[in-house]
Amino acid sequence: MLNVHSIETFGTHDGPGVRFVIFLQGCKLKCLYCHNPDTIAMEGGKPYSVEALFKMIMKSKPYFGKNGGVTVSGGEPLLQAKALIPLFKMLKAEGIHTAVDTNGRILNHFVEELLDNYTDLVLLDIKHMTEEGYQYLTGMKNHQTTFNLSKHREASGKPMWLRYVLIPGITSQPHLLSALGNYFKDFSTIEKLEILPYHKLGIHKWEALGWEYQLKDARENTKAELDDVKTMLEPYFNQVSIN
Rank of each mutant, 00 (worst) to 15 (best):
I167M: 09
A208E: 12
T171R: 06
S188P: 00
Y213M: 05
A179G: 14
E194P: 03
L162K: 03
K216L: 13
F187P: 02
P197I: 12
K216A: 13
G210L: 11
L209V: 10
Q173W: 09
E212T: 11
K185W: 02
L209F: 08
T189Y: 02
H204V: 08
P174K: 14
L180Q: 10
I167F: 00
K205F: 09
P159I: 01
R219V: 15
F184N: 02
V165G: 00
Y198I: 09
W161P: 00
D217G: 12
D217W: 06
Y198A: 02
K216P: 01
Y198F: 15
K216E: 07
Y213F: 13
F184K: 07
G210I: 10
Q214Y: 02
H204S: 11
F184D: 02
Y198H: 10
R163L: 05
R219A: 14
I203P: 03
K216G: 13
A208H: 13
I203E: 07
Y213E: 06
V165M: 01
K185I: 13
A179C: 12
V165P: 02
I167P: 00
P168V: 10
I190S: 02
Y213R: 04
S188Y: 07
S188N: 13
K192P: 04
G169H: 14
K192D: 01
A218L: 08
S172V: 08
K185V: 13
Y198D: 03
K216W: 03
D217I: 01
R163C: 11
L196G: 01
H175I: 14
E191H: 10
Y213N: 04
K200H: 05
P168G: 09
R163W: 05
K205M: 06
L166F: 06
L162D: 04
G210N: 01
V165D: 00
Q214I: 00
L201F: 13
N182T: 15
E212V: 13
E191F: 01
Q214D: 05
K200Q: 10
G202S: 00
T189Q: 04
Q173H: 14
L162E: 04
K216Y: 06
L209R: 12
L166Y: 04
P174G: 08
K205N: 05
P174N: 10
E191Y: 03
S188D: 14
L176A: 09
I195M: 11
A179Q: 15
N182K: 15
L193Y: 02
